[in-house]
């Protein structure tokens, strides 16, 4: 059963250089009790997607599309109804806990206020629940009276987790929960996150640019690039036989494959490349890749790829061999940078 079904979601910002298309036609689904990893480079629109699900973007953001949560479109919900969903149905751990926690309130208060507000508990009972929650995420309950700056990065992340899971939401969104942590802390946080989410039978949207983290706990993985989904499917399949050249690129950038970082720069979200957005950096692109924008193709059960080359890799090699004479002077330079053949 689908818990969250995002259909053709667009989030546009008016900026100085033009319209920033932070999410440009995102379609994504998340089942019940499922952990979905959303991976992609910095700036591709992951955090925006996480926030728009809870309608936490500023009023300046133009949002279109459908955001079905348990069958109900969150985008058409009035604000006072939407507020009841926040925290209770959907919890979020924002990126950078040092900034996402209020510096002048104790961490205990930042957690206990949730219980007072949503469950109408009194001071003492709310504190008691906060202590219990702290224990669950591995913080000594006597640190309830401390302030965020007194916690280390990993501990702040645990506070965020306690806040996100306080009301046992059906969906938790975790935005880069391992960013800036040392490897052992990182593993602890990831283990804790997946353990608690599984315990509650909640779903998790794990936003990260760390493929290894996604590989450890995710059931499914979605790959985002320049505001759109390039590939989505079961984690095992994506990691063992990626369908999209970009995903292959990401895998090759892992330390165990020798840190082969993708060439080229992430594209602009104001004027993304025509055709396939990845084509200027793609090692196996066809002539039509620079002209026609590929659709998200269903290639298996709950598996999608947005690529013209998919399923014709043999042909692609042929075309690449025969291609050079078709190259114009103008495209030669870009071809070198992007290893692209027209």
């Amino acid at each position: 059963m689908k818990l969250l079904d995002i259909k053709n979601l667009r989030v546009y910002f008016e900026a100085e250089g033009g319209i920033v298309k932070a999410n440009d036609g995102v379609s994504l689904e998340l089942g019940e009790s499922e952990i979905l990893g959303l991976i992609g480079e910095t700036g591709c629109g992951k955090s925006i997607l996480g926030r728009v699900v809870m309608r936490l973007l500023s009023e300046k953001a133009r949002v279109e599309g459908r955001l079905l949560y348990k069958g109900q479109d969150l985008l058409t919900l009035p604000e006072n109804k939407m507020r009841l969903f926040r925290g209770k149905e959907i919890g979020i751990m924002l990126q950078n806990p040092a900034q996402a926690l209020n510096p002048v309130l104790t961490v205990g208060e930042q957690l206990a206020e949730i219980y007072r507000f949503h469950e109408g508990l009194r001071e003492r009972e709310a504190k008691e629940k906060a202590r219990a929650m702290f224990k669950r995420v591995g913080i000594k309950p006597d640190r309830l009276g401390e302030y965020p700056h007194q916690f280390s990065g990993g501990m702040q992340q645990r506070v965020m987790l306690a806040i996100g899971l306080a009301l046992k939401p059906s969906l938790l969104i975790a935005d880069e929960p391992t960013k800036g942590l040392d490897p052992s802390t990182k593993h602890q946080i990831v283990a804790l996150l997946s353990a608690l989410v599984r315990e509650e039978h909640s779903s998790l949207l794990l936003i990260t640019h760390d493929l290894e983290v996604a590989a450890t706990i995710c059931d499914r993985i979605a790959v985002m690039y320049a505001g759109e989904i390039l590939e989505a499917g079961p984690a095992k399949k994506i990691l063992s036989s990626p369908g999209h050249p970009y995903t292959r690129n990401l895998l090759h950038s892992l330390p165990k494959y020798g840190l082969n970082v993708a060439v080229g720069q992430s594209p602009s979200l104001i004027s993304p490349p025509l055709g396939c957005r990845f084509h200027p950096r793609c090692g196996s692109c066809l002539k039509k890749c620079s002209k026609i924008h590929p659709d998200l193709l269903k290639t298996g059960p709950r598996t999608y790829v947005r690529c013209h080359v998919y399923g014709k890799s043999g042909k692609a090699d042929e075309i690449m061999k025969g291609a050079p004479e078709e190259m114009s002077e103008k495209t030669k330079n870009t071809a070198e940078v992007g290893r692209c053949h027209f």
Binding site: R51, R86, G87, Q99, I114, F117, H118, I163
Partner: peptide
């Protein structure tokens, strides 16, 4: 950012 966290709690 902490304002967004506060809103995300449903306050």
């Amino acid at each position: 950012e902490y304002i967004i966290t506060a809103r995300a709690k449903g306050l």
